[in-house]
Design a protein around this nucleic acid. Structure first.
Lengths: 251, 251
DNA sequence: TTTATCCGTTAACGCCGTTTACCGAAGCAT
DNA sequence: ATGCTTCGGTAAACGGCGTTAACGGATAAA
């Protein structure tokens, strides 16, 4: 049973986050200020300390919220494609990641840009998704491999130092799922770095000076990643078979 | 002939930059403040407006300075290797880029992180190096290709949309150097994105949660980029024939 | 009904960027 | 040497910021 106080408090927290998000979108990350948020809510700034210990804490909460939303967005895009089209699902999820970043540059910056001095992600929660959407991508890659059995680097072809690192990572994240070779985790790391580089460069405006539209390069790189796995290139974007928009219940 | 006034002014500008750099390294990008800089110099904040129109302008000048230094660092690392060892030179330059980023995280963040709302690089100077160190990397890749003639994507294998973008980029940067195929520019873009992704993820701390040391992955990706071009893997780091103490990596 | 907890207030401290007005000293032309 | 201009600094002030402290009213709990 939720008491009245708890409900009120929860609503206030939501309102704070909404106001904070408005300022973020309107004026960038540096535009988030306790005083401005409080002003928006018809309150005074010190009142916000009843809800967050500091501005940094409030921002950390925002980041966690966005991480959840980006995961939901990616999962929703993945589920646009039929369950059998594993590479189509992976491609659409990747595209959704890019689009979210470009549509939410300030938010993306907070999550994937340089952290403020003195911040570290919650981590260490040995749960099933310690890296959030990262796990979503890995699951898709693992499913794809289990069906297609595309070649992955043999353990001996991975430098020992990297092998140790990957092994440690796999164990820490519970990715030592039955029969997953280390080479697949190696490919996952490479793919994630590539996706991050593409999207971050574009979102941060560091690709503008060479290409005025990042979409062609993104699609070409996406296709390249698939063909380098021995898979056929994914269909062009936006090929959901049944055009019904809302068909995902759980996310 | 430089007048006395000019010399004094130049010295003051240098002192401002030095103070600003100290604060950047000590307290991160947000630690740069006109008042703190002025305090360091035994001045008052408004005096700085005689040298920079605003704090953003001062920061922009810092960025330009760092861009030059990172270019010099990369070139110096490249020149550690003998002129004939083209892939060794490319590898050492790439490693130097990573090391500079890890040794100068706040500075790297200013250059390659999300720009403050309202900033765009000088650009449009049709000179020989519109992208600074970017041109350094491209030149190395082009030299390597002209000798080794490793395979590059044929024009027909590049999606038309990307082809147009790359062509526009090549022309704008004067990269339509005799006989350079478009496929090489395609590879350059891919390689740069990959290098950026690797280094930025690590510098921003987004790789810490999966690997506690980024060096093995970096070396593995570097080797992979060379072998995927049909070249032998580069020698391990720190193989400059004449012993010059420059790099260490492993944590 | 009393008591404690929550949730807001006002006031203040010390930061910050920036603008304005002012002023002495350095440079320059006559 | 004189006068004038430009340069490079000052102090004062405005509005913004995060944060802390003291306080008070409403609400829940005993």
């Amino acid at each position: 049973m939720t008491t009245r106080r708890e409900r009120m408090r929860e609503a206030t927290v939501r309102e704070i986050q909404e106001a904070a998000r408005r300022h973020l979108r309107a004026h960038g990350p540096s535009g988030i200020s306790l005083r401005a948020i409080a002003r928006d809510m018809g309150m005074t700034a010190p009142a916000l300390y009843r809800y967050y210990a500091s501005l940094d804490d409030l921002i950390a909460a925002m980041i966690e919220g966005y991480k959840g939303e980006i995961r939901e967005t990616v999962e929703a895009a993945r589920d646009t494609m039929p369950a059998e089209d594993l590479s189509g699902r992976l491609a659409e999820a990747s595209r959704a990641f890019r689009h979210w970043a470009l549509d939410h540059r300030p938010e993306f910056t907070m999550i994937f840009g340089a952290p403020l001095p003195g911040y570290e992600p919650p981590a260490k929660d040995g749960g099933p998704s310690p890296m959030g959407f990262g796990a979503v991508f890995f699951t898709m890659l693992a499913d794809l491999w289990e069906r297609e059995r595309f070649p992955v680097p043999a353990d001996e072809d991975i430098p020992p130092a990297l092998r140790d690192q990957l092994l440690h990572f796999a164990k820490a994240c519970g990715l030592d799922r039955a029969g997953i070779p280390l080479g697949l985790i190696r490919l996952y790391a490479a793919a994630w770095v590539r996706l991050y580089g593409l999207v971050a460069m574009e979102a941060f405006g560091h690709v503008k000076f060479m290409l005025d539209d990042g979409a062609p390069l993104f699609e070409a790189e996406l296709a390249d990643m698939f063909t380098s796995l021995g898979l056929e290139s994914p269909a062009p974007p936006g090929h959901s078979p049944s055009a019904s928009a809302a068909q995902n219940a759980d996310s």
